[in-house]
Amino acid sequence: MPASPEDRRVAGLAAAALGLTLAEAAIPLPIPGVKPGLANIVTLLVLYRHGWRMAAWVAGLRIVAGALALGQFLTPAFVLSLSGGVMSLLTLAWAMHLPRRWFGPVGLSVLAALAHIGTQLLVVDLWLMPGGSLMALMPLFLTAALITGLGNGLATAHLLRHDAPGQEGSHP
């Protein structure tokens, strides 16, 4: 089956996201479970440039390939990553229909980040560590999500502004 130009584009973008995932896995972080999630910048960019379907493809490929590369495929870490990814994509599917005049990439990024970590905490609480009173750590994780969501959103907004898309009449 020959690859269409769109397939190639998805693959290239997923590779970029994968690169960010791997790079950030190398950064030592003080709290387990808290990481910047830089690959979501790519997801958001694709969402704005090419729509939700392609963003879902890129994010899904990144999650699976990232888990394979990090040796986490089908482990609990992968399940967490997948559940968080699915939920933030669903959140974005809804949030992208918010009026563009008032809601930009930063808002979407924060919503997606909160949905991501919220889902993960829920999965851990219900499945991995039932009764582990993980909910006590919720404020910590949500604060982190707020900060990383803001940072990634600002980065996305910056890229959207300064990186003219290759197609469609763009203007500075």
């Binding site: 009026p99 930009g104 930063v106 707020l146 907004a157």
Partner: peptide, 16 residues
């Protein structure tokens, strides 16, 4: 849709 020039729109502030 071209994203707005400003990074943070009112709705974003609301979400934050």
């Amino acid at each position: 849709v071209k994203p707005h020039v400003r990074s943070l729109l009112p709705g974003d502030w609301l979400i934050l």
